[in-house]
Amino acid sequence: MSPAELQSKTAHPVLAIENLVTEIRSVRGLIRPVDGVSMSFPAGKIVGVVGESGSGKSMTAFSIMQLFPTSAARVAGGRVLLGETDLIGRSPEQMRAIRGSRIGMIFQDPTSFLNPVLTIGRQIEQQLEAHRWTGGPPAGDRGQSYANRVSELLTSVGLPRDVSTRYPHQLSGGQCQRVGIASALACDPDLIIADEPTTALDVTIQAQILRLMMRLQRERAVALMLITHDLGVVAEVCDYVYVMYAGRIVEEGDVRSLFAAPQHPYTRALMSGVLSLTGTGNIGFAVPGSVPDLAAPPSGCRFHPRCPHAMPRCSQEAPPLFDRPSGRSACWLHDEATP
């Protein structure tokens, strides 16, 4: 792809979500793990999503796919725009046709996300069959071209071809994740969603897998949504980042400027954590206090019970996202009207 082509492809987001709301019916009442979230994913860019455990990162990803690990969850509002078309309200069959072809997904624990009783080749071939994949050389019968495509994909992620006849338990975690990447790329998607793709792997393998993902993403100018706990990774590989807290975006921005000058007290608390753990950049989250209970979220700014700058207004009104030089931040401190 020429630089000009790359440029034109990056102009528009391949996928954007607007005011997305997702609800889960739980024993403790209706909860909203995703509560009015808007994000945009431009082609060829890596967009990071960070936030403490339970902040709604995975639920946002599943909402884009409209595919949830629990039948109690459903998208309750907002739009998911793939190009010009809204995916919300599409039929199950239309959504099936998009999953695995226009949007690929890479999961956290690669070994548990592969069926133990089917060969690797079979699992990827099924995907090609499901989407009647027609890329590649036009000649030849389909079964043969599927097999060729599987070999091609495996080679592109650095696996020997004969992996296609093996079963998941015969591969290492890193190899399984390479298979996961191959499957996400199988039908040349517009967007790849990677939900903590390296968390379950050995530290030594993590960097390899991350580099591989980045290389393939750049080569194909595909948009990548990278969900991670690792701020170091965000700083290193992402172009843009969203910081989530309790089902909402609290801050977003261009990675370089946001890391240079974080605006939101929550983001700043996370960053100071980075500074205190010199070098590695890999921290669990160390903001004192804990994530609020989503069945009864705090009023106003959801961060106010833990915020060192909290004012009376903070517990009464939820702050909107204010424009900042680095991006946007949802905090009353940015409001001129705040005394």
Binding site: M65, L67, P69, R96, A97, I98, R99, G100, S101, M105, F107, D109, S112, F113, L114, N115, P116, Q123, Q126, Q127, A130, H131, S183, A186
Partner: peptide
């Protein structure tokens, strides 16, 4: 998980 993953791959 692998059923969820199969669905995410667009398997019917």
């Amino acid at each position: 998980d692998y059923i969820l993953a199969a669905r995410a791959r667009g398997i019917s």
